[in-house]
Amino acid sequence: MAEIFVCPSAELSEGARKLVENGADQIGVIRASGALHAFSNICPHQGGPVCEGLLVHKVEEVIRADKTYQGMRFNEDELHIVCPWHGWEFNIETGRCAGDGRQSLRRYKVIERNEGIYVVV
């Protein structure tokens, strides 16, 4: 396995991202929820640049015990990245698609050491 240098740690603050090249593949590295995450920048839906999408908290419907709809809320415990082409959402921790758990983003291991960030390929 090889490592690709992404950037100095100080350059990737919470919510920030950096794209790096790995041959024909582009890898997005994102610092979110206090951790580093790396994914291939290809949405499994139609190949959109998923790592360039918005970071949003999971939207949940609020249903009372009597089954009446009460609206929607953001779940602050689950962060998603949203593909900018068609809105497919993926859990930032797992890379799994929120709407279809059979789909997921290709993940890469990220290492932070000596004030630098590296992706293992």
Results as ranks from 00 to 15, higher is better:
Asn22Trp: 13
Leu36Gln: 01
Asp25Gly: 04
Pro44Arg: 09
Ala32Thr: 11
Glu21Gln: 10
Ala24Leu: 12
Glu21Thr: 12
Gly34His: 11
Gly34Arg: 11
Val6Ile: 07
Phe39Arg: 03
His37Gln: 07
Val50Gln: 09
Glu21Ile: 12
Glu21Cys: 09
Leu54Tyr: 05
Pro49Arg: 15
Val50Gly: 08
Gln26Ser: 12
Ala32Tyr: 05
Val20Met: 12
Glu52Gly: 12
Ala38Trp: 07
Phe39Met: 10
Ala32Phe: 04
Pro8Gln: 13
Ser33Ala: 15
Cys43Lys: 02
Asn41Leu: 03
Leu36Cys: 02
Ala24Gly: 04
Val29Phe: 01
Glu52Ile: 06
Asn41Val: 13
Gly48Ser: 09
Ala32His: 09
Val29His: 05
Ala35Ile: 00
Phe5Lys: 13
Pro8Trp: 06
Gln46Asp: 07
Cys51Gly: 08
Gly34Val: 08
Cys7Ile: 04
Pro49Gln: 15
Ser9Glu: 15
Val6Phe: 02
Leu36Phe: 14
Asn41Met: 13
Val29Met: 05
Phe39Val: 06
Leu19Arg: 08
Gly28Lys: 08
Gln46His: 09
Arg31Gly: 00
Gly34Ala: 11
Cys7Thr: 07
Asp25Tyr: 02
Pro8His: 09
Val29Glu: 01
Phe5Pro: 00
Glu11Ser: 14
Gly23Leu: 07
Ser9Trp: 00
Glu11Asn: 03
His45Met: 04
Cys43Thr: 15
Gly15Glu: 06
Glu11Leu: 11
Ala35Gln: 08
Ala35Asp: 13
Ala32Arg: 11
Ile42Leu: 06
Ala16Thr: 08
Glu52Ser: 11
Ile30Trp: 05
Arg31Met: 06
Cys43Leu: 11
Gly15Asn: 10
Ser13Tyr: 05
Glu52Trp: 03
Ala16Gly: 00
Gly15Leu: 01
Leu54Met: 10
Cys7Met: 07
Gly34Cys: 03
Ser33Arg: 11
Ala38His: 07
Arg31Ser: 06
Ser13Ala: 12
Ala38Tyr: 02
Leu12Tyr: 05
Phe39Ile: 10
Ala38Thr: 05
Leu19Ala: 09
Val6Asp: 02
Gln26His: 01
